[in-house]
Computed example of a mutant assay.
Amino acid sequence: MKMILISLLYFVMSGSNINQNNMAKINNPGQSIKNDGWKKLLDGKTTKGWHTYGKSSVNDRWKIADGALYIDNTVKEGGDIVTDKEYENYDLKLEWKISKNGNSGIIINVHEDAAKYNETYKTGPEIQVLDNEGHPDGKIPKHRAGDLYDLIKSSSEPVKGPGEWNAAEIICNKGKLQIFMNGTNVVTTTMWNDNWKQLIAGSKFKNMPDFGTFKKGKIALQDHGNAVWYRNIEIKQL
Rank of each mutant, 00 (worst) to 15 (best):
K153Q: 13
N182M: 02
N101H: 09
V129E: 08
Y90I: 05
L92S: 04
L92N: 04
A145R: 07
F214Q: 15
N182R: 03
Y70F: 12
G161H: 09
A201F: 06
T213M: 08
N103P: 10
F214N: 14
S203W: 06
E112M: 02
D223L: 01
N89W: 02
L238S: 09
N232H: 09
H111K: 13
L92P: 07
I81D: 02
K97D: 07
N59V: 08
R231C: 12
G217M: 03
I152A: 00
S56L: 01
T123A: 04
I6P: 04
T189E: 05
A114L: 11
N182F: 00
K153W: 00
E126G: 08
M3F: 04
A24R: 03
S156M: 08
K48H: 11
K2W: 14
P158M: 04
D91L: 01
K204N: 13
P29D: 12
K122M: 15
I233C: 04
I6H: 00
Y90F: 14
E169P: 02
A167C: 05
G37T: 13
D131Y: 06
K236A: 09
E86A: 02
K122S: 10
K204E: 11
A227T: 12
A220I: 07
K216W: 07
G134R: 00
K218P: 08
S203D: 10
I200P: 11
Q128C: 05
K122C: 11
K63Q: 14
D210N: 12
L151S: 05
E77D: 15
